[in-house]
Design a binder for these strands. Structure first.
Length: 506
RNA sequence: CGGGGCGUAGCGCAGUUGGUAGCGCGCUUGGUUUGGGACCAAGAGGUCGAGAGUUCGAAUCUCUCCGCCCCGACCA
């Protein structure tokens, strides 16, 4: 066996390593439909964990769930296109509503639709159309709705979890009476995302507004949370948009204010997707496979009975069940501890490695030797795969919540330290060019420097983009945290109030 | 859609003077084992991505098409 369960390693070939981790952990696989993935039970269970936590947060901040149609009349997007440059491009379009059997045995689409339907790439237009009907008075505001849905964007280059033609997400759409309120909502949801990323995904993020060129089409302001992957590239992990009155004007979302005057609403939209699963993989996983932060691990503890004889098996399973019961009565992160017994009749070594590759935070082996000694053997996924610690049987369960929290915190701190190592503050154009190295010359992306995040003073100016484009670097966002640090743009010399984060991105 | 690579068993691959398909892992069964991804034996599993062509004969040569991966353009 090689030194590591995953081949190639991160250092050898990062993109291939990523795919191998997904496969080894049995998270998802390619479907017969180009660009569309099948999310397998383990991958979907992680998504369900994310949904459960986020849904709780959305409701705690006053939102309700609803559901809008998958299909959007083409004219809705046309209407939007009038107001917004570059809106809606890579879309699936439904033009027929019927299949007929042809003479050659093939099915032929017939029943042409009068108006084509677009499979939603995002739902601003159709939700806005409904809001226009629902909202009449200031008393109807705010409208705070979220939907859990699938969307389709016919991406040129799909990549499992990170960019698939169809993906699952949530999209929040809110309408407000004032600009201030809508901005507040935009920032509140950005905070919800940032907290979720850091507390639950153990993934440090930088939040801030995007430069104009990176904004969602039609948005007044787009805010994002940006995370650093283990190859030093940035991943946009969530976005929150302040849409001003742009969409309200386009869709006629109006209300009568307290003075009686008719005004356009101020709207927001915000979303995170199954891409977060990719983000978690690339933030924490190692050369032995997936590493899951306990808070989103479908199983936080796996109990592995070890036995030879039937008699041993009974005793060992008994002990496992007792621990399982004890754990279910304890809580971590506001929920019962999730433990499962893996009593499958396969070799112990194989079983252990499966759980390593699937990222289970805590493995507990319980065999006759343990029972005789009154202990269990505990291994942590954030440590080496062969490390074990004997813990007194009676104490183990009660120690689990603290252990999970230690692992959760440890993963966060490790990711944060990694980001710090790969982050620099640069003062000149020459330093930027040097840090990100020359653009790849061989057309295969090899030979690039590992790079990372560069904190630099840059203006929101085409000259900056022109400099960064050949380097495949973008301005990710302007970090909101910390005090202003005025300076001058390293490209144009214009005064700017804060540094931006520059990076290559997924 | 451009550049590069590649499609042979579930996975990873070998297989060019063209001669009718193999290896490792996995899977099934039996046995020996068992606290660290075991060993021995037997077995199952393939229209060699699809179509057409050349040929007595094609995984192998020619053409067309399809799909996948990496790098771009697009993007969460």
């Amino acid at each position: 066996m090689p030194d590591h369960a995953i081949s190639p390693t991160r250092a050898q070939d990062y993109p291939e390593w990523y795919q191998q981790v997904v496969r080894a952990a049995d998270l998802a696989e390619q479907s017969p439909v180009r660009g569309c993935m099948v999310i397998k039970p383990h991958g979907y269970a992680i998504w369900e964990r994310m949904q459960a936590i986020l849904d709780r947060e959305f409701k705690a901040t006053g939102h309700q769930n609803a559901y809008f149609p998958l299909f959007i009349p083409l004219s809705y997007l046309e209407q939007e296109a009038k107001h917004v440059e570059g809106f809606a491009k890579e879309c699936a379009v439904v033009t027929h509503h019927r299949l007929e059997l042809g003479a050659d045995g093939k099915l032929i689409p017939t029943g042409k639709l009068e108006e084509p339907l677009v499979v939603r790439p995002t739902s601003e237009t159709i939700i806005g159309a409904m809001y226009a009907k629902w909202i009449q008075s200031w008393r109807d505001l705010p409208v705070l709705i979220n939907q859990w849905a699938n969307v389709v964007r016919w991406e040129m280059r799909p990549r499992v979890f990170l960019r698939t033609a169809e993906f699952l997400w949530q999209e929040g759409h809110t309408a407000h009476a004032t600009s201030e309120e809508a901005v507040e909502e935009t920032l509140r949801m950005l905070d919800v995302y940032a907290t979720f990323a850091e507390r639950d995904l153990a993934m440090p993020v930088i939040k801030g507004p995007k430069p104009a060129g990176e904004r969602f089409p039609g948005a007044v302001d787009t805010y994002s949370i940006e995370a650093m992957m283990q190859d030093g590239k940035a991943l946009q992990a969530g976005t929150s948009h302040f849409l001003g009155q742009n969409f309200a004007r386009g869709q006629n979302i109006k209300f009568a204010g307290q003075s009686g005057a008719e005004e356009f609403c101020w709207t927001t939209s915000w979303g995170v997707s199954t891409r977060l699963i990719g983000a978690v993989i690339m933030t924490h996983s190692d050369d032995d496979g997936l590493v899951l932060p306990p808070r989103i691990a479908p199983a936080q503890v796996v109990l592995l009975p070890i036995s030879r004889t039937d008699e041993e098996r009974t005793a060992v399973l008994d002990a496992c069940r007792t621990i399982e019961r004890e754990l279910a009565a304890l809580s971590y992160g506001g929920e019962p501890v999730r433990a499962k017994i893996d009593a499958r009749d396969i070799r112990g070594g194989d079983k252990v490695w499966q759980h390593v590759k699937q990222g289970v935070p805590v493995r507990v082996e319980i065999g006759p030797r343990d029972l005789a000694a009154g202990t269990v053997s505990v291994s942590r996924r954030d440590r080496g795969p062969k490390e074990r610690e004997a813990v007194p049987l009676g104490e183990f369960a009660t120690r689990v919540p603290a252990l999970l929290e230690e692992i959760q915190r440890g993963l966060f701190e490790r990711a944060k330290a990694f980001r710090a190592e790969r982050s620099v503050t640069l003062a000149s154009q020459a330093e930027v060019l040097d840090f990100f190295g020359p653009g790849e010359a061989d057309g295969k992306g090899k030979g690039q420097r590992p790079a990372g995040f560069a904190h630099v003073h840059v203006a929101d100016d085409p000259a900056v983009t022109a400099l960064l484009d050949p380097l495949k670097v973008t301005v990710r966002c302007i970090p909101m945290e910390g005090a202003d640090e005025p300076g001058t743009c390293v490209v144009t010399g214009q005064p700017v109030a804060r540094r931006s984060v520059l990076a290559r991105a997924y």
